[in-house]
Amino acid sequence: MPDPAAKRPRPLSPNIQNYRPQLTSVLSVTNRITGLALSAGAVVLVLWLVSAATGPQAYAAVQGAIASWVGQVALLGFTFAFFLHLCGGIRHLVWDTVHGFELRAIYASGWAVVAASLALTVAAWTASLFMGG
């Protein structure tokens, strides 16, 4: 017997195209994106160390690149990504102990991660400006 459904595969109902972004999914994908960004940051860290081991000239070149406005914007981005990933990671470690799963706790800790990351980024850059001042 011919099966009409066999003519064409069943369509898949939309997933990410239609599902509303929520604090849960947004912070999860943020943790992933910041993790990817920090992987790139880890490469920069190695470049920086290798340049310092090579000599003053190479080190000055890398320091110059970091001091340029592009470098400073990237560094600001890395700082925020670092604090988001750090705070988000601590939130995950708490969950791994089977704590903080009440919906209210999930949302409270989520917003706390956002607020703490912003505050720590501002604090780090303020401190850096005073130190380097």
Binding site: A52, G55, P56, Y59, A60, Q63, A124, A127, S128, M131
Partner: peptide, 11 residues
């Protein structure tokens, strides 16, 4: 933060 902008020798 403590070594922001320090030169090669200091680093």
């Amino acid at each position: 933060i403590a070594h922001a902008g320090s030169d090669h020798a200091a680093f």
